[in-house]
């Protein structure tokens, strides 16, 4: 058996499907294939050791209750959060951000919108640790509206961020040419971070990234 044959049999060997002497003999005599096999075993074992976090007990109760009520809107608080939070939105003017800005600002990202065609833009905030009572403010540029909140340019609310990914879905619609950027500012304690989103208007009316 040559190395290429061993490589072809590696998956079966890992799964106990190729336990014949030829494979074992090759493995015994070839340091390179032993190295391949050890890495394959190691990756498998690392995957098995990757322990999922515990399910939140409140989540189990909530999820079953929502399913039996067939309440799809209530089922995704994060997805509908923007609506709930936008109701409590206040003018962002005068928001104090504290004296220390320790976080670097994120690079500008671009989204393509078609005029008068609502598009859901998903902002995923990845946080390395939970942030309680963070303040998130949004400043929309001219000609971009949050669906259902015509005329509102500045929105701000308090929210808890979990460790890991936090999803904020923004149903946006462009009413015409967009020059400025959307600015999302997240502040927590004395730190804040600003995210900027640029818009391009699709000529053909086909939205996308």
């Amino acid at each position: 058996m040559e190395c290429k044959d061993f490589i072809a049999h590696l998956d079966d060997y890992l799964d106990g499907r190729a336990q014949d002497d030829a494979v074992r003999d090759h493995l015994a005599g070839c340091a390179e294939c032993r190295r391949r096999y050890q890495l394959a075993l190691g990756v498998q074992s690392a995957l098995r050791k990757l322990a999922p976090p515990d399910v939140h007990p409140a989540f189990v109760d909530r999820a079953i209750a929502r399913a039996t009520r067939q309440d799809a809107a209530a089922a995704h608080p994060r997805r509908r959060a923007v609506l709930g939070m936008a109701l409590a939105a206040t003018l962002v003017l005068g928001l104090s951000l504290g004296a220390f800005f320790s976080m670097r600002d994120a690079p500008v990202q671009t989204v393509t919108l078609a005029v008068e065609k609502p598009e859901t833009v998903r902002l995923v905030f990845s946080s390395a640790k939970p942030l309680r009572a963070a303040t998130l403010s949004l400043a929309l540029p001219d000609n971009v509206e949050l669906v259902g909140y015509a005329g509102r340019r500045d929105l701000t609310w308090q929210t808890d961020l979990r460790e890991g990914q936090n999803l904020l879905q923004l149903p946006l619609v462009a009413r015409g040419a967009v020059k400025d950027e959307l600015v999302a500012k997240l502040s927590h304690g004395t730190s804040s971070k600003t995210f900027r989103v640029k818009f391009e208007i699709a000529k053909s009316g086909a939205p996308g990234m």
Binding site: V121, R122, V124, F125, G208
Partner: peptide, 21 residues
Amino acid sequence: RARSPVLQLVVDGDSEEDPLD
């Protein structure tokens, strides 16, 4: 999800800038 735009924003990945981290 692949059909709707996603912006990945890292909130506090720059942990070296925060001595508490």
